[in-house]
Design a protein around this nucleic acid. Structure first.
Lengths: 233, 233
DNA sequence: CCAAAAGTGTTCTTATTACACCCATGA
DNA sequence: TCATGGGTGTAATAAGAACACTTTTGG
C-alpha cells in the first residue's frame, strides 16, 4: 500500500521546482494528475524517521533518476488559502482510494526546494498519484494547482541570486565547456543578454575557472578555449 | 488544558530569533525551562486551522506584548539530529504532564523566523513550558538545546543581508533619530565600524530618509539633524 | 578660543559599462 | 582573402574607501 498513513508525517509536504536547461531554453518539470487536467509541481511527503532533506532527495531521485542533485531550500509556505481539499479529493477518488478522512485531505505546510539540471540526461518518471510528468518551457507554464505558480516565481527569484556560487554545484554543463556555453546559461536564467567581453572578464576574475585546450569545431573562426570549474580551494 | 493534542498540528513547530537592540548591544531573547538549566529559543506550535505566519505572530505577541512585529522567515530545519526526546520528556515531567506517548515527544520539523525590536519597550513573558525569559547579549549566549545555537547563527547571516531594506520595517528606532543612532544600529548588527562620512552619504543616497529640524542636546558641539524614514513611495 | 561632534569635500582606488580592435580559423 | 566568432584593449562612468577640512555648539 503506497502512501500509508502510518509511514508519513501528516500535514507536512515538500514541493520542488526542477529547472531544466540544455543549451537554449529554461524548462520546469510539471506533473499532471490522471484524467484531471490538474497540473502540479512534483512533491512528496516525509517519512516518520526521515530527515527532511533526505525525503526531498528520495522523491527527486525517483522522478529524475538522478542522485547527487544539488537542492536548495528557499521557503516554507503555510497559509490556509494554499489548501484545497476538493482537488485532492478528486485525485484520490480517481485512484480508487478510500477517501473519507484520508490523511492527504488535511491541511499541509509545504517546504519548497529548487534544483537545476541538464534536462537532456533525464527521463522523468511520474509519481504514485499522477500519470504524466513533462518538461514545460518556463514562459509557457500551464496554470498550476493551489499556490504552485507562486512557488515557481519565488524559486526563480532565488535561483537568480548569486548564480556564480551555485553554478559550481549544479552539474548542468559538461565537464569542459566554452565561455559561450557558460554565457548562454546566464543569459537564459537571468532573462537578459550579458555583454560578451565583460562577461568573459568577470568570469575569469572570479577565479573559479580553469582554462584547458582549445576546441576545434570545424567552424571557420577562431577556436574557443575550453574551461572547467576548479575543484576545491 | 494548554497544548492539547487536538488543537495543534503534530510534528511542526516554529522557533523565533528575536534580536533586541537599544543603543549599544545586540541581544537575543532566550527562555529557560523550569529548574532545568535548559535554554531555548522561544517557539511554539501551529493550530489546526491557523496560517503559519499567524501562529508565529501570536506566539511572539504573547511573549513580547508587541503586535505589528516585522517577522522574516529564513529557513526550515528538518534533520533527525535536531530531535531529542529526552530533554522534552524532562520538561514535560517537570510540568506534571502525563508523559507516555505525549505528542510533544515526537519528531518536529521547525520553521525559523527572526525579528528585530527595541528591547527597552518590551517586557518578556514566559510561555507555558518555561518559567523565565530574558535578554542575553549576543556574544554571551548560553548553550542552547537541540540545534538552536545553529539557528541563531543562520538568523544573523540573514539579518545582515540587505539591512537597508529591512530597517524601514523593523520599528527599532524612534520616529525621529540622528544619523549617529542609525550608524550605531549598522555597526552593532554588522559587527564592524563603518566610516562616518561615507555612511552618511550612502544613507542619504538611498533616498529613504527625510531630514527634519536639528536636535539640540546641550552638548558643546554642532547639533545634528533629525531624520525619519520616508513613508510609502 | 577651545574641544567635540557634525557636515561636507577631495582624492584615490576599484567595479561596471560600452564599444573598438585584432586574431585565429576554414571555406 | 573574406566572413565569422573569439580574445583582449581602452575610455568613460559609477561606486566605494580613506582622510582632510570646515562649521556649529556650549563651556
Amino acid at each position: 500500500m503506497p502512501l500509508a498513513k502510518e509511514e508519513y508525517l501528516p500535514n507536512i509536504s515538500y514541493d520542488s521546482v526542477i529547472f531544466g536547461f540544455s543549451g537554449e531554453k529554461l524548462k520546469i518539470l510539471i506533473l499532471e494528475y490522471h484524467n484531471m487536467k490538474t497540473f502540479a509541481l512534483p512533491g512528496g511527503f516525509v517519512k516518520i524517521d526521515e530527515p527532511l532533506d533526505t525525503a526531498v532527495k528520495r522523491g527527486l531521485s525517483e522522478r529524475t533518476g538522478l542522485d547527487e542533485l544539488y537542492l536548495e531550500q528557499f521557503r516554507t509556505f503555510g497559509s490556509m488559502e494554499r489548501f484545497s481539499s476538493e482537488v485532492m479529493r478528486k485525485i484520490l477518488e480517481e485512484q480508487g482510494h478510500v477517501v473519507e478522512d484520508h490523511w492527504l485531505l488535511g491541511r499541509f505546510i509545504t517546504v519548497a526546494y529548487y534544483a537545476l539540471i541538464n534536462y537532456e540526461i533525464v527521463v522523468p518518471t511520474p509519481d504514485k498519484l499522477s500519470d504524466s510528468i513533462k518538461w514545460y518551457d518556463f514562459d509557457q507554464l500551464p496554470s498550476l494547482m493551489m499556490d504552485h505558480n507562486e512557488i515557481v516565481e519565488k524559486a526563480l527569484d532565488h535561483l537568480r541570486m548569486n548564480l556564480d556560487q551555485k553554478l559550481l554545484s549544479f552539474n548542468l554543463l559538461p565537464e569542459r565547456f566554452t565561455m559561450k556555453e557558460l554565457k548562454q546559461v546566464y543569459d537564459t536564467i537571468l532573462g537578459e543578454t550579458q555583454n560578451r567581453a565583460n562577461f568573459q572578464r568577470k568570469m575569469l576574475g572570479l577565479n573559479i575557472l580553469e582554462r584547458h585546450e582549445k576546441l576545434f569545431t570545424g567552424g571557420s573562426h577562431k577556436a574557443p578555449f575550453l574551461y572547467s570549474f576548479k575543484k576545491a580551494e
